[in-house]
Amino acid sequence: MSAAPARTIQIHDPTLRDGHHAVRHQLDAQQLRGYAEAANAAGVPVVEVGHGNGLGASSLQVGRALLSDDEMLATVREALTTSKMAVFMLPGWGTVRDLDDAVAHGVDLVRIGTHCTEGDLAERHLEHLRERGVEAHAVLLMSHMATPDGLAEECARLVGFGATGVGIMNSSGHYLPGDVTERITAMCAAVDVPVMFHGHNNLGMAVANSVAAAEAGASILDACARGFGAGAGNTQLEVLVPVLDRIGFDTGIDLYKLLDAADLAERDLMTAPPAVDSVAIVSGLAGVFSGFKTRVIEVSAREGVDPRDVFFALGRLQAVAGQEDLIVDVAQTMARAAAEKVSA
């Protein structure tokens, strides 16, 4: 009896975008070029590049990048001879002008991200990209804050705005596989465009969650070399690809060259691979954006409070990316409460 034909799934690699969070957006042109060339050689279909928060986000609030968007795009575009180049944008950081600049640099795919209940914010940008004839996907962040049906409804609305693909990010690493299955199943039933899943590894479940997404019908999975990314990192690319192969999915990626790319990433891009440490675990349990980790640790140390308490407090407030100022407010409130308790 012949084996069943492999199911095709596409891997998108945001190592050079999401990984930027882990190094304060300080990758230089040589680092970008080296990894892009290695990913291209391995046959990774799509390589995403940019500031960790996307086009136009380089700022004092979330970190100034070493290179401008134009410099990053020009460098990576030159290195990608077969792989497609993608960018990410959050409305409010990036603008239509940023999108047009990216298109001028030869970007193949644009992802527009919004909070999971605020897809309407992407309408103008998706319509603009549709008019420009650019492939545009819509991505819902902090997706654990919405129900499966709620995500499905948002995705259907986004397709109406012009999205040629939709997806969810497990921005806090909060999901277990059953959570992913419910959401991807609902989304796939609601739209007739490709569905994507982007996992974070706070609870050590990123690969398992990505497999659950694939089995539930997702046709695009995000993963980064060595899991390079904010906090505990993302789904580990060089682990996910052979796991998918073992369960019958074809990625079209050369394993040995992918392993070479991962070795290069660990050697040249990061001081150390992401780790599922105590603070990352609490971030996942609290459902707080992984990118808050470094800032929470810094502010908590300054104010003399426990960063784990800060994360759980931020979770109760349902803090989302872009609300970094809340970290200071929460930590200072805790410090004052502790001081008042001592003096009482």
Results as ranks from 00 to 15, higher is better:
10 Q>D: 04
16 L>W: 04
27 L>W: 10
30 Q>H: 10
38 A>C: 06
40 N>V: 04
44 V>G: 00
47 V>A: 06
52 G>C: 07
66 L>Q: 10
73 L>H: 01
73 L>D: 00
75 T>A: 06
75 T>M: 03
76 V>C: 04
77 R>N: 08
81 T>K: 11
84 K>W: 07
86 A>P: 06
91 P>K: 05
92 G>K: 11
93 W>G: 01
94 G>Y: 05
103 V>S: 10
103 V>L: 14
104 A>M: 05
106 G>K: 07
108 D>Q: 10
124 R>A: 15
131 E>T: 11
145 M>Q: 14
149 D>Y: 07
153 E>W: 02
153 E>F: 01
157 R>T: 13
158 L>V: 02
165 G>E: 00
167 G>P: 02
174 H>K: 12
181 T>K: 15
201 N>V: 11
202 N>R: 09
203 L>Y: 06
207 V>F: 04
208 A>M: 11
215 E>H: 09
220 I>T: 00
224 C>Q: 06
229 G>H: 03
234 N>T: 05
235 T>F: 03
239 V>D: 09
244 L>N: 02
247 I>F: 12
253 I>R: 01
255 L>S: 13
286 A>H: 11
296 V>P: 00
296 V>D: 01
303 E>H: 13
305 V>S: 13
306 D>K: 11
307 P>M: 11
310 V>Q: 08
312 F>G: 03
321 A>P: 10
322 G>Y: 01
323 Q>S: 12
324 E>D: 15
328 V>L: 14
331 A>W: 00
334 M>W: 08
338 A>M: 15
